[in-house]
């Protein structure tokens, strides 16, 4: 039981880290540009598909991953320069609609290029083993690598945002866009950089999960909406909030699915508990969001409503 708990705890952290990689780019775009981007999930999906293609082209997952990063950065740049740039000063409704259109185009386009059937990336030989946990329980190395990569990214973001000039501009842009522009910072260029960087993070997440999850045209949407929940919980614009929110959502979702029915069994008869658990578990994160919003409408780390 304890080792099962530990196992699910690690799974939850891994899922949370994945959500963080996606939510980080999203929250920066939300916070600084006040921009709703429904197309962020499909960038994550593009990352996974590109990883599939590059891996089979080069024969190496590592090389495939390395190629995916600049490729998704480029995707972000193209999207920003062609569409998003024109939407910053539009109402949220326009932003929602245009990015929804992009979701339709890209989701269908991916099926034209790669087909609708799920694809997968072979696990790299080097990372395909598992390490012993408690007792006979083992944990796959690759999932630990995902956790480590996510933590390193979080650390990197923390350093860049907190301790570099561009990070300083970014924070300044988040709190007062007009003032920063007046002080001579090219805010348009800053937006482009942030946007492309956020797209690369999402692409990175997609490429990282390609060996452990199936790559299919629906993968971006589930994650997108959970990333929204993460951002709402953490507070829009706060990378720290996104990190806390992502871990919280990852843990609650994973542990709720595996232990919800077990806990319910203590108060209900087994059959009913199983049914109720299956129904309640996927709803848990949304209930969590509702509760947090009821207490703190601007999220855990949000500054203003």
């Amino acid at each position: 039981m304890t080792s099962l708990f530990l196992l699910q705890l690690l799974n939850g952290v891994q899922f949370g880290i994945l959500l963080f990689l996606i939510a980080a780019g999203l929250t920066l775009v939300f916070g600084i540009m006040d921009f709703v981007n429904l197309a962020h999930g499909v960038v994550y999906m593009i990352g996974a598909y590109l990883a599939v293609t590059f891996t089979s082209m080069t024969g190496s997952y590592g090389l495939g991953l390395l190629l995916t990063l600049p490729a998704t950065l480029l995707v972000g740049l193209v999207l920003e320069l062609s569409v998003f740039r024109r939407l910053y000063d539009r109402p949220h409704l326009d932003q929602v609609l245009a990015t929804f259109g992009l979701v339709m185009i890209i989701t269908e386009g991916v099926q034209v290029i790669w087909g609708a059937a799920p694809l997968s990336v072979p696990m790299p030989e080097l990372l395909s083993g598992s390490v012993p946990l408690i007792g006979a329980m083992r944990y796959p190395v690759f999932r630990l690598v995902i956790i480590a990569a996510g933590l390193l990214t979080a650390l990197g973001l923390y350093l860049v945002i907190g301790h570099t000039r561009i990070g300083m501009r970014l924070r300044a842009g988040a709190s007062n866009r007009a003032m920063v522009a007046a002080l001579g910072v090219d805010i348009g260029k800053l937006f482009t950089v942030i946007f492309a960087f956020g797209a690369m993070l999402a692409g990175f997440a997609g490429a990282m999960v390609a060996p452990v999850l199936t790559v299919d045209p629906g993968m971006g949407e589930q994650v997108l909406i959970l990333a929204f929940v993460v951002i709402v919980i953490g507070g829009i614009g706060s990378v720290r909030g996104a990190f806390a929110g992502a871990l919280l959502v990852g843990l609650v979702d994973t542990l709720g699915r595996s232990f919800g029915p077990i806990l319910l069994r203590a108060v209900m008869e087994p059959a009913a508990a199983g049914q109720a658990g299956r129904v309640l578990a996927p709803m848990l994160v949304y209930i969590l969001m509702a509760v947090i919003l009821a207490v703190r409408p601007s999220g855990l780390f949000g500054a203003k409503t």
């Binding site: 909406i225 709402v232 829009i236 129904v279 996927p282 949304y286 969001m289 919003l293 409503t305």
Partner: peptide, 23 residues
Amino acid sequence: RTRGIYFIMITLAFAQMGYFFFV
């Protein structure tokens, strides 16, 4: 209780909750 972007995302999330309930 929220405005703007928050409202869009939260209504979306609640609908998704209903979706998963019926799934």
